[in-house]
Amino acid sequence: MAAPESGDGNNGAARMVTLISSDNTRFEVEAAAASLSQTLQLTILDGGGGGGDGIPLPNVDSATLSKVLEYCIKHAPAAANGGAPNATAVDRAELERFDNEFVNIDQSVLYSLIMAAHNLEIEGLQSLVAKKVADMIKGKSPMEIRRTLGFPDPTPEEQAEMNAHMLEYGWAYE
């Protein structure tokens, strides 16, 4: 859960910004990586987040933010290339491998991540997690989906309602 250390040895080449999680952990990252967030990009373009000031993110805790930034740092070079039209096949394969590994995590973290991606408007990350959750649903029965995604079993009333629904709409489930 440690914050990435500031780039003291980066010869001042890349502009750094500081982000502050809901539990007051400070994260120093390259502005280019943080700018994958549409929300942060505006603040950063206005010159915010540098020096002693940080950008407070009251909706994102430190564990989630460090994961979000891991994604941003990995994807920043490709994003700077304008969606990387010139990227080599090797680069693209490497990013894909990273993405697959990246979402191979506990479900509750996936949901925290997609919430953060939504709040910070990081489209690629939101889409990556949505696809992962959709993949967890595919090919399963309603009961299996409930078990997999941690939904409670239907109450007898809900079950009765569902049975009535199936009587009316059963044909739509062919």
Binding site: S108, Y111, L149
Partner: peptide
């Protein structure tokens, strides 16, 4: 704070998944 279930997601995100 991190613990989150699918049902906690707003409608907009559930739509993205669906």
């Amino acid at each position: 704070q991190q613990y989150c279930m699918m049902d906690d997601l707003p409608d907009a995100l559930l739509s993205e998944i669906i």
